[in-house]
Amino acid sequence: AEKTGIVNVSSSLNAREGASTSSKVIGSLSGNTKVTIVGEEGAFYKIEYKGSHGYVAKEYIKDIKDE
């Protein structure tokens, strides 16, 4: 099942092309942005936001229960 997560940073969080800190940054998400978690790979979540996919470090995403 898809989960919703909240970007848990004070400034912004980089979204990357792949599940690695050396992957190209494809965008950034500001704190408290809601994202859909579609998968996980190592220390990263694969997320969907406004129709695009990217990878973000798990430690900066807070899971919330689907309402």
Rank of each mutant, 00 (worst) to 15 (best):
A15L: 15
G54F: 12
V25S: 06
T21M: 15
I37G: 00
E48W: 11
G54A: 15
V38F: 05
L29V: 08
F44N: 02
Y45P: 05
T36S: 07
A15Y: 15
E17V: 08
E41W: 07
V25L: 06
I47M: 01
I26K: 03
H53T: 10
G42M: 02
G39W: 03
V56M: 01
L13S: 03
Y49Q: 01
S10G: 11
T33H: 05
Y60F: 13
D66E: 12
T33I: 07
T4K: 08
Y49E: 02
E59A: 10
E59L: 07
I47H: 01
G51R: 03
E17T: 06
V25R: 04
E59R: 11
A15I: 15
E59C: 11
A43H: 09
K58Q: 04
S11C: 15
Y49W: 09
S20D: 12
T36P: 01
G42A: 04
T33G: 04
V38S: 02
D66I: 14
S52Q: 12
N14T: 11
K24G: 06
S10P: 11
L13W: 01
G42Y: 04
S28K: 12
T36A: 07
K65Y: 10
A57N: 10
G5Y: 05
D66S: 12
S28A: 10
D63R: 09
T21S: 13
I37F: 01
G5D: 02
T21Y: 14
I6A: 03
L13K: 02
D66Q: 11
A19S: 06
I26Y: 02
K50P: 02
V56W: 00
K65D: 09
K65M: 11
G18N: 10
S30K: 14
T33L: 07
G18S: 14
I61R: 01
K3H: 08
Y60R: 04
S20A: 06
A57Q: 14
Y55H: 00
D66V: 14
I47L: 00
G18W: 10
G18K: 13
G27V: 08
I26C: 10
I47F: 02
I26T: 03
V56Y: 00
I47V: 06
G5R: 03
I37T: 00
E17I: 08
E59N: 07
L29Q: 01
T33Q: 10
I47Q: 02
G18T: 12
S28V: 14
T4N: 06
I64Q: 06
Y49R: 00
V38R: 03
S30D: 11
K3D: 04
V35I: 08
Y45C: 08
E59M: 11
E2V: 15
E2T: 15
G51W: 03
K58S: 03
T21H: 14
S12I: 12
T36D: 04
K50W: 07
I6G: 02
S10K: 13
Y60H: 10
Y49V: 05
G5F: 05
T21W: 14
E67H: 12
V7N: 02
K34N: 04
S52L: 14
S11F: 07
K58M: 07
R16I: 04
Y60G: 08
S22D: 14
I6Y: 11
K24C: 08
E67F: 11
K46A: 04
D63I: 15
V7I: 10
K3Q: 07
S28F: 12
K50L: 12
E67S: 13
E48F: 10
K24F: 04
Y55W: 12
S30A: 14
G39M: 03
V56F: 00
E2R: 15
V9H: 10
E41V: 10
S11L: 09
K3W: 14
T4V: 11
V35N: 01
G18A: 14
L13R: 02
G51F: 05
T21E: 14
S11E: 11
I64S: 06
E41R: 04
G27W: 13
Y49T: 01
H53Q: 08
S12G: 13
T36G: 03
I26D: 01
K24N: 08
E67R: 13
T21N: 14
F44K: 01
T21P: 12
G54S: 06
T33P: 02
G51E: 07
V25E: 04
D66P: 12
K58P: 02
S30E: 13
V38C: 11
E40C: 09
K3V: 09
E40H: 05
Y55C: 04
G31P: 15
S11R: 11
V35P: 01
G27H: 04
K62H: 08
S30P: 15
S20G: 06
V7M: 04
T21Q: 11
K62S: 13
T21V: 12
Y55K: 00
R16Y: 15
K46S: 02
N14S: 11
V25C: 08
K65R: 13
S10E: 12
S22L: 11
A1V: 13
Y45M: 03
